[in-house]
Design a protein around this nucleic acid. Sequence first.
DNA 1: AAGCCTCACAACCGCATAGCA
DNA 2: ATGCTATGCGGTTGTGAGGCT
Length: 289
Amino acid sequence: MGRKPCCDKEGLKKGPWTAEEDQKLIDYIQKYGSGNWRSLPMKAGLERCGKSCRLRWANYLRPDIKRGRFSFEEEETIIQLHSILGNKWSAIAARLPGRTDNEIKNYWNTHIRKKLLRMGIDPVTHSPRLDYFDLPSMLCSHQNSPLMNLPAVLLNLQNLLNPELLRFPTSQNGFLNFNNSQNTILSNLQNNISDNQVPSAQTINQFDPIPSFNELLGSSSTDNSGFVSNSYQSFSNGSSFSTALSPLSSSLLHPIDSSPTYLNSSKSTEDEIDSYISNVEKLLESPVL
DNA sequence: AAGCCTCACAACCGCATAGCA
DNA sequence: ATGCTATGCGGTTGTGAGGCT
């Protein structure tokens, strides 16, 4: 036994759909409804496998699909849901009306993922990546310069860590005392510097880890639903996860992908920056708890 | 102007799983 | 309980468009 051969082994058509094929599929589904995808192609007069028809309908032809650019709110929602659900694209799509899992997956891989990397956020763990802050070189340059520059170096470092993170609730402790991690890092750095040691990236990673987004959700991994229903709304209200890092940090980060593409300023990038800045402004206006 | 490169997105592939006999 | 089919899902690939040299 085993599975039936797929379309390529049955001599069925593959590749991009033509307008005529689309119309045949739409006509058939409007007339008879979807379902029974295996027999549908033959009945609809299509030389495609059922799987291909289902995908074409689900990802492109369905009338309730919202096409066009993702809004900033949608993007935020995707990031937040991804931090909770991971690569469960269908689960994420279920919470974004009119968007398909395939569309979200593509958008994640082509836009959001790169954006997060550029911001120094690991797109898998959603945690800030200290290994991409060029701390060693910052501190090396400090070592070769008068010691009076140390406060400036530390101030820059401090700016990487946004107090807004303090507002992230945890399920057990109420609010995370992020200042502890921040102070530990700073004091460890100061100790190292006073001992004439220049910390390597590896050394820096040994410091108290900055909590990942998932960790900020609370130590009980099964208790995420409460976060989604309660805290997620406050995140959506102008204070996004993407603003968890200080806006100053982006200028200090070394992007993992420094190809010229990211230096180009396109219209869409400008729009994104504009909306990002306005979001940051909203964030700064809101009172810190 | 032509060739090359990069990016975005549609489509495919193979595995997982639900449902049914 | 088992085997089979249909469908769902996530990772990957293919292709066309646009930009760059």
